[in-house]
């Protein structure tokens, strides 16, 4: 209950922090060029002849949506929490009545409005330049998009929390996370639409957690999802969220038990 009462204030503080470092935020957003680089490659591929229903328009729309969803779902918890565990500044935060992870979650969510302010002009410019890109998805898809993109964000947050908790035991958590991130890039639809993978890989891609972290909301936004696939995706996302919560909880409690903070 502490949390609910404090949440608006946490949010306000976080938002002020984001506004204070707005230039930094803009640069962070500019660094996510990967979807555009991938777009160049795939555009060259589908330019000659459409592939799996992707022509130049569809592929551009796909990667524009990827750019948007990536911005809506990214967090930087791993680096912050790692630092806190390593330097021991976590001890101070543990004294507060709120769970540090919740505070971090509020922090990350507070950055969303700013991200939107930067992203929207970019997307509007894109649509002004190539109006054929704009195809509003069905109402049901838009409605499902909201929970889908939220679960995608939550999954990413939980994964980073889990890897950060490993810092209670290990020093190499960022190297381990690089491995996860490599797999994520490939299997989440960040580098290529998942339809481009061989037929045999599709069932596996559907049940792995990666699809729910990016491709599921992207497909809703680009009108490639059907009600059936959307429901399955939501179910898989929910399942992995439960697993994620359980893992983070276990790691956090055990980690704290052996956490002899430096100087604590």
């Amino acid at each position: 209950m502490h949390l609910l009462r404090a949440l608006p204030d946490i949010f306000r503080v976080s938002f002020a922090g984001v506004v204070a470092y707005r230039a930094e935020m803009v640069i962070w957003i500019l660094t996510s060029t990967m979807p555009l680089i991938m777009l160049a490659l795939w555009n060259a591929v589908v330019d000659e002849a459409p592939l799996m229903g992707f022509g130049p328009t569809e592929i551009t729309r796909y990667f524009a949506a990827t750019l948007l969803v990536r911005q809506l779902t990214s967090s930087w918890l791993l680096w912050e929490l790692n630092e806190e565990i390593r330097t021991g500044s976590l001890s101070m935060k543990l004294l507060r009545p709120m769970h540090p992870l919740w505070v971090h979650a509020a922090d990350m969510l507070a950055a969303m409005p700013t991200r939107m302010v930067v992203l929207l002009p970019m997307l509007l410019a894109l649509v002004a330049w190539r109006p054929e890109l704009l195809a509003l998805p069905d109402a049901w898809a838009l409605a499902v998009f909201l929970p889908s993109v939220f679960l995608a964000w939550l999954l990413g947050f939980l994964v980073q929390a889990a890897f950060a908790c490993l810092a209670f035991w290990l020093e190499q958590t960022q190297g381990l996370f690089a491995l996860w991130f490599g797999a994520w890039m490939l299997l989440s639809g960040y580098l290529a639409p998942l339809e481009m993978f061989p037929e045999a890989a599709q069932p596996l891609l559907g049940v792995l957690p990666f699809r729910g972290m990016l491709a599921a909301p992207v497909e809703l936004l680009t009108g490639r999802a059907t009600p059936q696939t959307a429901l399955v995706d939501l179910g898989v996302q929910l399942g992995w969220t439960v697993v994620g919560f359980a893992v983070v909880r276990a790691l956090w409690n055990r980690g704290l038990a052996r956490y002899g903070a430096y100087g604590a």
Partner: peptide
């Protein structure tokens, strides 16, 4: 880790050339 991550970096090219003989 570097070798594994780099292998995943090559993967998109294999996907692309699984579909096409030539790109650009």
């Amino acid at each position: 880790t570097a070798l594994l991550v780099d292998a995943m970096r090559v993967a998109p090219l294999l996907l692309v050339y699984g579909q096409r003989e030539q790109v650009a």
